Simulated assay, not measured.
Amino acid sequence: MDDKKVTRIAAVGDIHVKETDKGKWVSYFKEVSANADVLIICGDLTDTGDEDEAAILAAELHACTIPVVCVLGNHDYEKGRHKLIRQAIQSTNVHVLDGEAIVIGGVGFAGVKGFGGGFDRYLLTMFGEDANKAYVQEAVDEALHLERALNKLDSEFQVNKKIAVLHYSPIKATVVGEPPEIYPFLGSSRLAEPLIRNNVTAAFHGHAHAGTLEGSISNSDIKVFNVAKQVLSKAGYQCPYYLLEV
């Protein structure tokens, strides 16, 4: 493995593909392919969680000539058809991660959807009603899935460059711009802990459409990017994807 090799990672989230989007994304994926080595899509691949929307996206992704790494988002779970959506999109070139890891061009990618629960000292704790405990347990489970995927990059692949692909945010800084009242539903600090322990290079997420493009995990050098398409457009990206060289 050549650690000196530079890999260009394009990242976007919340593309919300609709059944009426046939042909809409071809030029986008062609442009990304011309400028990057890998494309990350950080969840909300579909608009209403329908497998017909996923089929449209799968067809549009034929225009993408570079490897694609995705996670699902909350919209993809809306109708309980997330397994069908994953099956429709997954291919030899498109990798939909859910607690799994993959290495492309010497860079390791670990992906989970993530979940909510809040940040820092306002992190929701496992106390009270069973419904509240179940909500917190979902966030704990997602963090554990992320931990295992990142551990696999160390134990099996031994890569030094590690990228986390999420839908929900691991830090508060990149959801700032949204109403503070909904911060607990936009991410969880529990997702940051595996990133720190495994010394990731960077993390990407979406979900917070009115959030902030860039932040970092406290007391670390780990950058976090909110690459929701809406955030990138607001930041002035004509063709909305963020490009990071690692």
Rank of each mutant, 00 (worst) to 15 (best):
residue 121 R to V: 11
residue 86 R to Y: 07
residue 24 K to P: 01
residue 97 L to M: 04
residue 242 Y to M: 09
residue 215 G to F: 10
residue 225 F to T: 02
residue 188 S to Y: 03
residue 52 D to N: 04
residue 167 H to R: 11
residue 196 I to P: 00
residue 142 E to S: 05
residue 18 K to Y: 10
residue 147 E to H: 09
residue 136 V to M: 10
residue 68 V to Q: 09
residue 105 G to N: 12
residue 31 E to A: 13
residue 129 E to K: 14
residue 22 K to D: 04
residue 203 A to L: 06
residue 179 P to Y: 15
residue 164 A to Y: 00
residue 65 T to Q: 13
residue 44 D to S: 02
residue 45 L to R: 11
residue 246 V to W: 09
residue 217 I to S: 07
residue 145 H to L: 02
residue 130 D to G: 07
residue 193 E to L: 03
residue 126 M to H: 12
residue 31 E to T: 11
residue 56 I to K: 08
residue 117 G to M: 05
residue 57 L to R: 12
residue 206 G to C: 05
residue 35 N to W: 02
residue 99 G to S: 01
residue 177 G to C: 11
residue 127 F to L: 08
residue 57 L to Y: 12
residue 20 T to K: 14
residue 206 G to I: 04
residue 151 N to E: 10
residue 167 H to S: 05
residue 175 V to C: 09
residue 136 V to Y: 08
residue 38 V to I: 14
residue 155 S to C: 05
residue 239 C to K: 15
residue 48 T to E: 15
residue 56 I to W: 05
residue 76 D to L: 07
residue 98 D to V: 04
residue 226 N to V: 10
residue 71 V to A: 11
residue 65 T to H: 13
residue 107 V to N: 06
residue 58 A to Y: 08
residue 228 A to N: 06
residue 206 G to H: 09
residue 241 Y to R: 08
residue 64 C to Y: 08
residue 109 F to D: 03
residue 95 H to Y: 14
residue 140 V to D: 02
residue 20 T to A: 13
residue 177 G to K: 10
residue 150 L to A: 00
residue 195 L to S: 00
residue 136 V to L: 05
residue 221 D to Q: 15
residue 99 G to R: 00
residue 127 F to P: 00
residue 7 T to Q: 08
residue 221 D to S: 14
residue 111 G to D: 07
residue 219 N to Y: 15
residue 161 K to T: 06
residue 11 A to D: 02
residue 75 H to K: 14
residue 163 I to Q: 08
residue 118 G to D: 08
residue 130 D to H: 07
residue 209 H to P: 01
residue 93 N to Q: 15
residue 39 L to K: 08
residue 69 V to Y: 06
residue 47 D to A: 12
residue 28 Y to T: 10
residue 190 R to I: 03
residue 70 C to Q: 10
residue 81 R to I: 01
residue 148 R to Q: 03
residue 59 A to M: 14
residue 119 F to R: 13
residue 28 Y to L: 13
residue 38 V to H: 00
residue 8 R to E: 06
residue 18 K to I: 00
residue 108 G to F: 11
